[in-house]
């Protein structure tokens, strides 16, 4: 019933050119069987028009390599790949965050950013820092890595996962002292962006293969439930995206 049944020249071309890809995938995922599975998935993806490159092929344009390593490591702990399915890295959350950093939102374009600023105001007064999201990420990642070096002698991305989890809990609770901004503020932005990237429409670079939506049973852009309103049953159809991808 899908596009897989229709053969055309473009598909043949893609299929042939795909033989080059597993080398790259192998390097980052480590494991022949995984690489093979990825090849098959990629073939399917490439058949769909407009599909972006896979998470591990994406080259960041905002983050530096050090920042990119932090983002990868941190989001992999916030939403881990586990027995319930793929996590944030597999969903393309790092790509999502990098792409968001190049939008007007990340420059604080629709926030009121006139002073005077009262950064120590109580939390119920809302965000009162002078920093826009680009600065929150850039300064926050550096502060987190500095903190990690101080505590453990190496940057966050090189810590073992249990130490990373413990560090994230310190950031979350504001127990780690960051100089340029509160650790809590940085953690909240990181976690919110991670969930956005995990559950957004794939058009934004995250939620690749709709893994976030499949996990929770959200049908995406189907947006027509007239026949299911009153029924206390599982909705049977898999998600679709704005671009028309089907999970």
């Amino acid at each position: 019933m899908s596009v897989d049944d229709t053969s055309n020249a473009r598909r043949d071309f893609l299929r042939k050119s795909l033989t080059l890809i597993p080398v790259v995938t192998l390097a980052t995922t480590g494991g022949a069987s995984l690489a093979l599975a990825e090849t098959k998935e990629r073939q399917r993806d490439e058949d769909k028009p407009g599909q972006s490159a896979r998470a591990d092929a994406y080259q960041p344009t905002f983050f530096t390599p050090e920042e990119w390593a932090f983002i990868h490591a941190a989001v992999a702990r916030l939403i881990p790949a586990d027995d319930r399915g793929p996590g944030a890295v597999e969903a393309g959350v790092p790509e999502y965050i990098d792409r968001q950093m190049n939008t007007p939102y990340a420059q604080g374009a629709n926030w009121y950013m006139q002073g005077p600023f009262q950064p120590d105001a109580p939390s119920e007064m809302g965000y009162q820092l002078k920093l826009n999201p680009q600065q929150v990420f850039r300064l926050g990642i550096k502060a987190a890595d500095d903190w990690s070096r101080q505590q453990h002698g190496k940057p966050f991305a090189e810590l073992d996962t249990a130490t990373q989890d413990a560090a994230l809990r310190q950031f979350e609770a504001g127990k780690a002292e960051f100089d340029p901004l509160p650790a809590k503020t940085f953690f909240a932005a990181l976690l919110q962006s991670t969930k956005e990237g995990f559950f957004c429409d794939p058009i934004h670079g995250g939620n690749k293969d709709m893994v976030g939506w499949k996990l929770v049973g959200f049908p995406g852009a189907r947006a027509d439930f007239m026949d299911w309103v009153e029924r206390d049953v599982a909705y049977p159809f898999p998600p679709v995206s704005i671009r028309g991808e089907r999970a």
């Binding site: 702990r77 916030l78 939403i79 881990p80 586990d82 319930r84 399915g85 996590g87 989890d165 994230l168 979350e172 976690l191 991670t194 969930k195 956005e196 559950f199 957004c200 976030g212 939506w213 996990l215 929770v216 049973g217 959200f218 599982a234 909705y235």
Partner: peptide, 29 residues
């Protein structure tokens, strides 16, 4: 509700990690 803002877990669930993820999968619908 949609999942970025709409995922809501029972009280006591952590805000992230595997436990958060499992609860999101078990309770969203």
């Amino acid at each position: 509700t949609r999942p970025i803002a709409g995922v809501s877990n029972p009280p006591g669930t952590p805000n992230w990690g595997s436990q958060w993820k499992a609860a999101a999968a078990d309770y969203y619908n």
